[in-house]
Design a protein around this nucleic acid. Structure first.
Length: 479
RNA sequence: GGUUCCAUCGUCUAGUGGUCUAGGACGUGGCCCUCUCAAGGCUAAAACACGAGUUCAAAUCUCGUUGGAAUCACCA
């Protein structure tokens, strides 16, 4: 049986779009699930859109999520080169060959101008382009080319009837040949368009499965026509639905929608992003939702790909990201967070101080100390802080429990977390209070904050006995 | 506008003629737990776009309607 070969063929235009990444993922999974090869090919035939450094972003992103390619521009392979601009001669050769075979023709028409007038445009686009150059004989065309006249090679669509092709996710698709337009295959500058380079490369690189957005469905018959003229076998098509921002708009950088880089910069783990997008348009058929890349390799099948577009929901990604973060060990979390702050954000944090913050709880105290000492200089405790419906705490209760806390703490001679906590807990129980009713107000009294990195008693330990009692007094005065 | 495609809770989805008073997850509300936040547990509300068929039986098949998307570039 033929080896499965898939390819991810992004154009280096600057960022890694989420939809693109998902396509890459599916390509990768198809290859790996079948013990095949995943190929990276850079489609840089449009020099106008080329963005410096974009290729690097592609490399880095793929590596970061663990999708390693078996052949590509940087590592080579038997079917190179893997950058389309370096294959210019190959396309030219095949384009002229296609003309000889009757699948294309030379065209000397002027490039259609950008139409600024929208209303006029709607009128025009309804009319199909009829190429007058179709009437030029091959000999005459060759003479004009030899004379130095600029030209383009256009696909010739002279087939009648209906094209039928099979798509793994959409099934049979019928499109009338009349609907196809005679698009440019080789541009004036000698570069191929996607429509051509794609076919040539996929064939020459022995690609077995082509995964791409479903916006290509309507032009697939054109590609098949080229395969047919050359006598080649078309690949298996896997058209996937779009990733949407909302019901009307697809996700795009233009609208300011997040790219992979943006998400990572916001603190999303690459693993979580990958996991989330895998489930956008695909599901395993079980109730499992958390998947590592290698787990996906084992369970992925094209048959479970969906037909309808999926809306990218950052809320669910956020939840999933939380799952991943919680699964990190203390060391991993620490390392990840350090990397995030230092390398990613480049904020110049004091790594030692930050390190302390990120260590397990007890070691958090250094930082709390700084925080509370700063706050101590302006303890404008708001009485509203003592209200918290969830813990059933009110200013009245707080007043009582703070008195209680003062008495209990004043009587202690040992000042460590365990002692403080158990003493207060006992006192609360003995007086009919819930733990939270004494500890929550205590936190507020000591820190001036509703939420703190450590518990109330941990703060008290840091503050020391006299400062703790002092602050309880201040709080009591306000209550 | 032509053509192609799509249509289950707000969102991602399960569901391939009976097991569907439609299941799960995120989010949302309530309760519980809790030394705050978070996490966790329980619970609630929430969907088959509409209309005709076919069938003993339809979320599932057919047709139509409506709604949405894509495409119609010397962009990919």
């Amino acid at each position: 049986m033929m080896e499965t070969r898939t390819r991810f063929a992004p154009s280096p235009t600057g960022y890694m779009h989420i939809g693109n990444l998902r396509t890459a993922l599916y390509e990768y999974l198809i290859a790996k699930a079948n013990g095949g090869k995943f190929i990276l090919r850079i489609e840089d035939t449009d020099q106008k859109r080329y963005v410096e450094g974009a290729t690097d972003i592609i490399y880095k992103t793929l590596k970061r999520v663990g999708m390693n390619w078996d052949e590509g521009p940087d590592i080579g392979g038997n079917f190179g080169p893997y950058i389309q601009s370096e294959r210019k001669a190959i396309y030219a050769e095949y384009a002229h060959k296609l003309v000889e075979l009757g699948g294309a023709h030379y065209c000397f028409c002027k490039q259609k101008e950008e139409n600024e007038d929208d209303e006029e445009e709607t009128q025009e686009t309804h009319e199909k382009f009829k190429d007058p150059c179709l009437n030029i004989s091959l000999d005459e065309a060759k003479k004009r080319i030899a004379a130095g006249e600029p030209y383009v090679i256009r696909q010739t669509i002279n087939k009648k009837g209906t094209s039928v092709f099979h798509d793994v996710v959409y099934g049979e698709i019928d499109i009338d040949y009349n609907e196809l337009d005679e698009g440019v295959l080789l541009k004036t500058d000698g570069m191929p368009t996607y429509n051509f380079a794609n076919v040539i490369d996929d064939h020459l690189m022995n690609i077995t499965h082509v995964v791409r957005g479903n916006e290509y469905i309507s032009s697939t018959p054109k590609y098949n026509l080229i395969y047919e003229t050359f006598g080649w076998t078309p690949p298996i098509y896997v058209h996937v639905p779009q990733v949407m921002k909302d019901a009307q708009h697809k996700l795009s950088k233009r609208n300011g929608d997040a790219s992979f880089q943006d998400l990572v910069a916001k603190g999303y783990l690459p693993e979580a992003v990958l996991n989330y997008i895998a489930l956008l348009g695909w599901n395993p058929g079980t109730e499992q939702e958390i998947f590592s890349l290698s787990e996906l390799e084992k369970v992925f099948t094209c048959e479970r790909l969906n037909k309808s577009p999926a809306i990218f929901d950052i809320t669910k990604l956020t939840w999933m990201n939380g799952c991943y973060i919680r699964n990190l060990s203390a060391e991993e979390f620490h390392k990840t967070a350090m990397n995030y702050y230092d390398h990613l954000l480049g904020r110049g944090y004091n790594l030692e101080a930050l390190s302390a913050v990120l260590q397990p709880r007890v070691e958090v105290l250094n930082d709390i100390t700084e925080q509370t000492q700063f706050l101590a200089q302006m303890p404008e405790y708001d009485i509203a802080l003592y209200e918290n419906a969830k813990m059933k705490t009110t200013p009245e209760i707080a007043k009582n429990t703070m008195k209680l806390a003062y008495d209990v703490l004043a009587g202690l001679s040992v000042w460590d977390n365990e002692t403080l906590f158990s003493s207060l807990k006992e006192a609360a129980a003995a007086n009919g209070f819930k733990n939270g009713q004494i500890l929550y107000p205590l936190r507020v009294a000591l820190s001036g904050l509703q939420t703190t990195p450590g518990g109330a008693t941990e703060i008290a330990v840091v503050l020391g006995k006299s400062e703790t009692l002092n602050r309880i007094n201040i709080a009591l005065a306000k209550l």
